[in-house]
Design a protein around this nucleic acid. Structure first.
Lengths: 198, 198
DNA sequence: ACCTGTAATGTCAGTTACTGACTTAACAGC
DNA sequence: GCTGTTAAGTCAGTAACTGACATTACAGGT
C-alpha cells in the first residue's frame, strides 16, 4: 500500500533515533526500528542502504552548499581564503540543522561504527572541496591538501561554536584559521638536524 | 592441535590477500579464506576481530613509532616542527614495509569498506600524535589541529614519495610542509566582506 | 465503472559476517 | 604419567542485508 511514501522514511528515522538513545546503537536491531515505525524490515532497507545511514540525512545538500560557496567566492582569493569564504556562507545551514543534529551527537559519540561513517562523510566533503578548488584553477595536489587542512580548521571552528554559541561562526572560523597560520608559520626556520636514530 | 600458533595467522593473511586480488574483497568470504589457509572459519575470527583487519597488521607499531618520534624531538621545537621531526624519523619503517604494503594498495583502492577502515586507522594515528603533542605542553585544541594538519601533509609527502622514490622522504616532507605554509599564509590578509547571500 | 500502470510495501527464502559455549588435540613442565 | 595451557575444531545461533515475487493503493484515461 503506497500511501505512505516519504512519511515512512521520517517515521523510520524518528524510531531509530529513539531506540538508539534508549538502548544504544549496537543493541538495536533493524527489525525493531521497522516495527516501531510500523513497517517491515525490508522496507527499512528500501529507504536506507544500511543501518547506519538512517541517522545521516541531507549531507549531500551540505556538500553542494560547500562546493557552491567555493565556486561563488571572488576569483582573486587564494585557495584557503576561498575555503574560509565557503565555510562562512554555510553557517546558516549549520544553524538551521543544529537542533536536528544535536540529539544524534551523543549516539555517534559512543558508537565507533558511526564515527567511522562520519569520517567517510567528511572525506566526501573534502573531495568536493578539492574538486571545487580545482575548478578555480588550483592544481590537484595543493587543492587536496588545502581541502583537508581547511576542513580540519572548519571542524575545530564548528566544535568551538557548538560549545560557545555566543561568538558567531565567522569569528570562530577566523580564530581557527589564524591558529592554523600560527602553527604552520614556524616550520622550516631552524631546519634541525633531521637524523633518524633508532 | 595448537602446533601452529603464529603460523596460521600468516597463512590467513596470505590467503586473504591472494583471494582479494583474484576476485575482489566483497566477493570473497571468510570461509574461503580460512579454507585456503587450511583452518576453520572460527579460527579466522580468533586471529582477527573482523574480515577487514586481516589486511592491516603492524599499525600499532607505526603509531608507537610516531608518538616516540614526537616525544624524542628537541624540546625547543614548535608543534609542527616536532611533527616534521617525527615523520622524518619514521621513514625507515615506511621503507621497510613498502614491498609488503604495496600489493594491498590496489585492493584497498577499489573497496570502499577498506578505505573506511584506513580512515579510522589514520584517525588513530592523529589521536596519538595529538596526545604526544599534549605531553610536550601543547594545549589540547591546537594539538589536535596540528596533528590533523600534519598528518595531511605527511600523507601527501608519502604519496609523492611512493610515486617518485628518487627524492628522499625528508625532501618530500619538507616540500609538503612548505606547501602548507604557503597555503595558510595567505589567509586573513584582505579580510573580504564575508556576507552570506543565498 | 473498468482497465492499466506504477509506486510503495509485504512476504519469504537465502547468504554472510560474526559470537558463545563446549569439546578436542598437541605440547610443556612437574 | 599427570596436569595445565594453548590453539584449534564443532555446532548452534543472531543479525545485517539481498533477490524474487506477490500485493495493495492510488492515478489517469477511456
Amino acid at each position: 500500500m503506497p500511501r505512505d511514501g516519504e512519511d515512512a522514511r521520517r517515521r523510520l528515522q524518528q524510531a531509530a533515533l529513539e531506540l538508539f538513545r534508549e538502548r544504544g546503537y549496537d543493541a538495536t536491531t533493524t527489525a525493531e526500528i521497522a516495527a516501531r515505525a510500523g513497517v517491515t524490515e525490508r522496507t527499512f532497507f528500501r529507504h536506507f542502504p544500511d543501518k547506519r545511514e538512517v541517522l545521516f540525512d541531507g549531507e549531500e545538500r551540505f556538500r553542494a552548499a560547500l562546493a557552491d560557496g567555493v565556486a561563488a567566492a571572488p576569483g582573486a582569493l587564494e585557495p584557503m581564503e576561498a575555503l574560509l569564504w565557503a565555510f562562512g556562507a554555510v553557517g546558516p545551514i549549520l544553524e538551521a540543522n543544529r537542533l536536528f543534529t544535536e540529539p544524534r551527537q551523543t549516539v555517534v559519540a559512543d558508537t565507533p561504527a558511526l564515527q567511522e561513517r562520519v569520517r567517510t562523510k567528511t572525506a566526501g566533503l573534502i573531495d568536493a572541496l578539492a574538486e571545487a578548488l580545482r575548478r578555480r584553477g588550483v592544481e590537484g595536489g595543493p587543492a587536496a591538501l588545502a581541502a583537508q587542512v581547511g576542513m580540519a580548521a572548519f571542524g575545530r571552528a564548528a566544535g568551538a561554536w557548538f560549545a560557545d554559541p555566543s561568538m558567531c561562526l565567522e569569528d570562530h572560523l577566523r580564530a581557527a584559521f589564524e591558529e592554523l597560520r600560527n602553527l604552520t608559520s614556524a616550520v622550516g626556520r631552524a631546519d634541525p638536524k633531521r637524523r633518524r636514530e633508532r
